[in-house]
Nucleic acid binder design. Structure first.
Length: 774
DNA sequence: GAGTTTGAAACT
DNA sequence: CAGTTTCAAACTC
């Protein structure tokens, strides 16, 4: 394995630097090829070749795919569990398509697995032979080829296989992952493991590689399309449009990818083993949740998903395919952030020790990633969001899951997405990050995004049939995770009225919007509109709730005086709601009103704008009100306390142990009644976590602390500054902070991670502990 | 599920 | 900057 890992790294690097072709010269390639050649020589291989119409791809090509996989996998690592399930489900599904073999690799699986890759390879071989940089792993290369041939032959079967096959079930995926892990560990080099790995990690990358090929060789594009068209059913690649759409984003992606690869690869290798576990879980989830869009066998797959809690949405709709892209993008972002969650979860399941290490590694990855993102596109999602548009995070909150469903719809999207997504996401994320980075927004910005990201995930999971239903589900369950779904009818989701747009994320299936332009397909429009709005109000997409204590001088120092450290950036303007309903952005954000607010009759349970001080004749009335509020608060506080306690416990468990992911358990104050405020979701942590981060890459820690803040405030503040502070090192040194922090910031990051910058947090989106438990 | 209320966002 | 309109979420029934 050691060698393999090195190879992978090399490949990744080569790909990153010269992904499209130059890399070919790398010495690694030779290494890889040799094994492949041997493999090819085998009678089985020959037999397969004879059967398959598709020409066998050289190991080199395969290696590329693996490389890409390995590379891409990194992001997945970061995905939060929820996100993972959803997002990754998409990706995973992609992987599944590509890697049907994962699960058990039974003969069927093996064949199937190769199918996608094989197809991919074929394209490469035809048009991109040059393209392939280095073979990542000798073994991997070998298997792929083998599978490729089989795959070509059985592509149709494979497709059906992936989705329909019971193997696809979560178990299989895990099995594969496990194998993969073992390989990484150096135990076995069976081909299957690689495949599984590729499926996990590389699906996205793999796709990217394909895209690259297309770009490089336009002629290939044709071939690719033809292949896709032929195998469309199988591959699930949907519309050619997707592929085309990818082209644009793809180029962008390359740059970003390059950076990411370089950054990630270095660290990834270190974390690989640990991550693999996480990935395994992730992959597992993905496999389940993300059925490939393939039409075949989805029913069974869907059933499984539902059972799992990750419902899929119809995949068939072409529109969805386009959506998928966006989703993927989100996913990517989210994955970054979400990966952590998954990772954590996995670790939790596996062992606490694993977590600690893995987490650390992850952080490192995140850090690197973040910088990279920044460097390139300069704009992100919140975290996985990265707002989507931005974000990065890709998938933070709400979206990711939702997205996954869409993505599932078409395999093509998967392919495309990987490439396209990352770039976009990165760019988005970058932007978001930058924004977040801004002095004013430092700590807070991320929160909303994160929540959103989480929301995505959740939404995806829940997304199913009618949008309303989806939405409802999301609200009930998904929303808790912070995912956002809009219901826009006239704004085309290109105005701040649209929560998705405002959150910097693309609309996903769960959304019930009409004439929605907030989709990856309309990326240009979205970005243009975004710019417009930003030109009007640079902070338009900034988190509305900022933690005053941290910094954010902008907000008004006064706000910081209020009990809650966080305050609404601009303040509310409520007149009838008394700031006691979610109409009030302050209340919704779980923060008290501040001087910035122009509200009338403020009764904000989180803190009145006038603070404790009552003025004049109103004092008495206010006192009475306060009493009532106090009562209310007490109630709320109790619920909050419970939640907080749970969160803390969970987090502690998570941090130390691989606690179960049940973020569902973690509740936000609002959860009691209807949806928790989105922001609240975020703040809490994100239960779902990761989502928010993705958006702008910023973690939403700061935002809605709600009641939690007060209760935990002391502790949080200690931690919060750390988190928020851009550079603050790792303050978390104190155990308390770590434990305590979870409720607020929970980025899912282990205590140590918190210390990292905001950026890191962004990527970290998830709160492992929050992740829903089985 | 439909209708109402509310306040932010957008517009003037 | 203030007033008005538009919009979609939040809320109620």
């Amino acid at each position: 394995m050691g060698e393999e890992g090195k190879k992978l790294d090399r490949e990744c690097e080569s790909e990153a630097y010269g992904g499209e072709g130059p890399a070919m010269d790398t010495p690694n390639r030779n290494q890889i090829t040799t094994p492949v050649s041997q493999f090819e020589d085998s009678p089985v291989f020959n037999y397969i070749n004879s059967l398959s119409p598709i020409k066998t791809v050289k190991s080199v090509r395969i290696s590329q795919m693996f490389n890409s996989f390995s590379f891409t996998s990194v992001p997945s690592i970061f995905t939060s569990p929820h996100v993972n399930s959803l997002k990754e489900s998409r990706f995973l599904r992609r992987h599944n398509f590509s890697d049907p073999s994962k699960p058990e690799f039974s003969s069927e699986n093996g064949n199937k697995i190769g199918g996608n890759e094989g197809v991919m390879d074929v394209h490469k071989s035809d048009e991109q032979q040059n393209f392939d940089p280095d073979s990542c792993i000798g073994e991997a290369s070998v298997e792929p080829t083998y599978e490729c041939s089989k795959i070509a032959i059985e592509v149709s079967q494979t497709l059906s296989y992936d989705h329909g096959s019971p193997d696809c079930g979560t178990m299989p995926c895990r099995g594969n992952e496990t194998k993969f892990v073992s390989e990484l560990a150096g135990t076995s080099g069976s081909v299957v493991p690689f495949v599984s790995k590729t499926g996990f990690l590389g699906s996205g990358v793999h796709l990217e590689g394909i895209r690259n090929i297309d770009q490089n060789n336009e002629g290939l594009g044709c071939a690719w399309e033809s292949l896709t068209s032929d195998a469309a059913d199988l591959l699930v690649f949907d519309s050619p449009s997707d592929t085309e759409a990818f082209a644009g984003p793809f180029q962008k992606l390359q740059d970003s990818r390059m950076n990411l690869c370089t950054a990630l690869v270095s660290e990834f290798t270190h974390v690989e083993i640990k991550n693999t576990q996480a990935l395994g879980s992730v992959g597992f989830e993905q496999c389940e949740s993300e059925n490939p869009p393939s039409q075949v066998g989805e029913d069974s797959h869907l059933k499984e998903i539902e059972a799992t809690g990750e419902p899929r949405e119809q995949i068939d709709n072409e529109p969805i395919s386009t959506l998928n892209r966006g989703m993927r993008r989100r996913c990517l972002v989210f994955e970054m952030a979400g990966a952590r969650r998954k990772h954590l979860d996995d670790n939790s399941s596996s062992s606490s020790s694993m977590l600690s290490q893995s987490d650390v590694n992850i952080e490192s990855n995140d850090k690197q990633l973040v910088p990279t993102k920044l460097g390139h596109d300069s704009s992100r999602c919140i975290l996985p969001g990265i707002g989507l548009h931005l974000n990065a995070l890709a998938r933070t909150s709400k979206d990711y899951n939702i997205v996954s469903h869409e993505t599932l719809a078409s395999g093509a999207q998967f392919i495309n997405d990987p490439t396209g997504q990352e770039p976009i996401n990165k760019s988005l994320a970058m932007i978001s990050v930058e924004r977040n980075m801004g002095p004013t927004e430092n700590g807070v910005p991320g929160m909303e995004d994160v929540s959103q990201a989480s929301g995505y995930i959740a939404s995806e999971e829940f997304s199913q049939s009618s949008p309303k239903k989806k939405r409802r589900r999301l609200e009930n369950a998904g929303e808790s995770e912070g995912c956002k779904r809009c219901n826009c009818k006239k704004s085309k989701c290109l105005k701040l009225y649209c929560e998705c747009f405002a959150a910097g994320v693309y609309c996903v299936e769960p959304c019930s919007c009409q004439d929605c332009f907030n989709k990856p397909i309309h990326e240009a429009t979205v970005l243009g509109t975004r710019k417009q709005i930003e030109s009007r109000n640079p902070l338009a997409f900034a988190p509305k709730v900022i933690k005053s204590s941290d910094s954010v001088p902008e907000i008004g120092d006064e706000s910081s005086k209020t009990p809650a450290s966080a305050r609404h950036k601009r303040g509310c303007n409520c007149k009838k709601s008394g700031c006691l309903k979610k109409y009030c952005e302050c209340y919704q954000g779980g923060v008290g009103c501040s001087i910035n607010c122009r509200c009338e009759g403020c009764k904000n349970a989180f803190g009145r704008k006038d603070g404790s001080t009552l003025i004049g004749a109103d004092a008495e009335v206010e006192e009475e009100e306060e009493e009532t509020e106090a009562c209310e608060k007490s109630v709320v506080d109790k619920s909050l306390q419970k939640n907080v306690i749970q969160n803390i416990i969970e987090r502690n468990s998570d941090s130390t142990l691989p606690a179960t992911p049940s973020r569902a358990l973690v509740q936000q104050p609002f959860s009691i009644k209807s949806k928790p405020p989105r922001s609240s979701f975020l703040s809490i942590g994100s239960s779902s976590g990761f989502c928010g981060n993705q958006r702008f890459g910023m973690p939403n820690f700061l935002q809605p602390q709600h009641k939690f803040e007060k209760q935990i405030q002391a502790v949080q503040e200690d931690e919060m500054p750390e988190i928020l502070s851009p550079i603050s090192g790792i303050k978390s040194s104190s155990p308390n902070s770590k434990r305590v922090s979870p409720p607020h910031c929970d980025f899912g990051a282990p205590p140590g991670q918190r210390s990292t910058r905001k950026l890191i947090l962004q990527s970290i989106p998830s709160f492992p502990s929050l992740t829903p438990k089985h």
